Amino acid sequence: MSAGGRIPAGARVVLATHNQGKVRELRALLADALPDLDVETAVVDAGAVGAPDVVEDGVTFEANALKKARAVAEHTGLVAVADDSGLAVDVLGGAPGIFSARWAGRHGDDHANLELLLAQLQDVPDEHRSAAFVCAAALAVPAGASGPAREHVELGRMPGTLLREPVGVGGFGYDPILRPEGEERSTAQLSAAEKNAISHRGRAFRALLPHLVAALESRL
């Protein structure tokens, strides 16, 4: 461990993110699964432990998520969780995929990414505009008294159809142009609760949860 004493008292698991919304989601999942755990102190973000930023240079969502989880686990000696996600368009062979956040060239420019993708698909008929949001959620457990180091990854998907123009003001990224299967609204028109119930992230983290709970219980 190289955190230099910066790990907060009671910290049990680090989520490799600076997004507090993701931290709240993981705390809520763990609160239901481990009611005796004080999730407010047990679950912390990367900033709380001084974890370094990780270059996401993997060629799959799984590789990027695992790289982040490994780095945080090695840095802190704590159980670590990380995710990587993006949009996979069938007619583009799964692109933008891992390049979703920088599809137009500059990382995080949601508007430019969305506009470029729509332009690339403008001649694609509706019946061929299938796509899915994909998320890989990774768990890294460092070696210790509970046993050797171990890892686990789960994938979650939210399939749907790409619209021809943005609809809705909620969410972020490509949310305004994906209509999930079984919905008449875009992802950007769903409430946070509706989105979490069917989202790629929600599905991946719910699938990872039993493995995370087992890891935490083994380190009591």
Rank of each mutant, 00 (worst) to 15 (best):
R157P: 00
V169N: 14
C135I: 09
G147N: 06
E151A: 01
Y174E: 09
A143R: 14
A137F: 04
P148H: 02
G160R: 13
H152G: 00
C135Y: 10
V169E: 15
L163N: 04
G168K: 04
G173H: 07
Y174T: 12
G171S: 04
P159L: 02
E151H: 08
P166Q: 12
S146H: 15
P159Q: 02
E154V: 14
A145C: 00
L139R: 08
A143T: 11
R157K: 05
G144W: 04
P166L: 13
V153Q: 10
L139Q: 05
G160W: 11
G147Q: 06
T161N: 09
L163H: 06
Y174H: 08
R164F: 01
G147D: 07
A136L: 14
A138R: 14
G147V: 01
R164Y: 02
L163M: 15
A149V: 00
M158N: 08
V134N: 01
T161Y: 03
P166E: 11
E154W: 02
G171I: 04
P142Q: 08
V169K: 14
G156A: 09
M158H: 00
G170H: 13
V169R: 15
L162S: 11
V141R: 10
R164A: 11
Y174P: 10
A138V: 14
P148R: 02
L139Y: 04
V134S: 02
P166W: 13
G171M: 06
A138K: 14
V141S: 07
G160M: 10
L162E: 08
A137Y: 08
G170K: 06
G156N: 06
E165A: 15
A137T: 12
A149H: 03
G170E: 09
P142L: 10
H152V: 02
T161K: 07
P142E: 09
E154G: 02
A136P: 12
C135A: 15
C135V: 11
S146P: 00
P148K: 00
L139S: 05
E154N: 03
L155F: 06
V134F: 01
R164C: 04
A138Q: 13
V141W: 05
E151Y: 12
A137S: 14
P159V: 01
Y174K: 08
P142S: 12
G144R: 07
V153G: 06
V153K: 08
P142W: 09
P142R: 10
P166N: 11
P148L: 02
E151L: 00
P166K: 08
G147F: 06
Y174D: 10
V153P: 03
R150T: 14
M158V: 01
A138M: 12
L155W: 01
V134W: 05
A149E: 15
G144A: 09
L139K: 07
G171A: 07
L162W: 06
V167C: 04
A149D: 03
P166G: 13
P166M: 11
E151G: 00
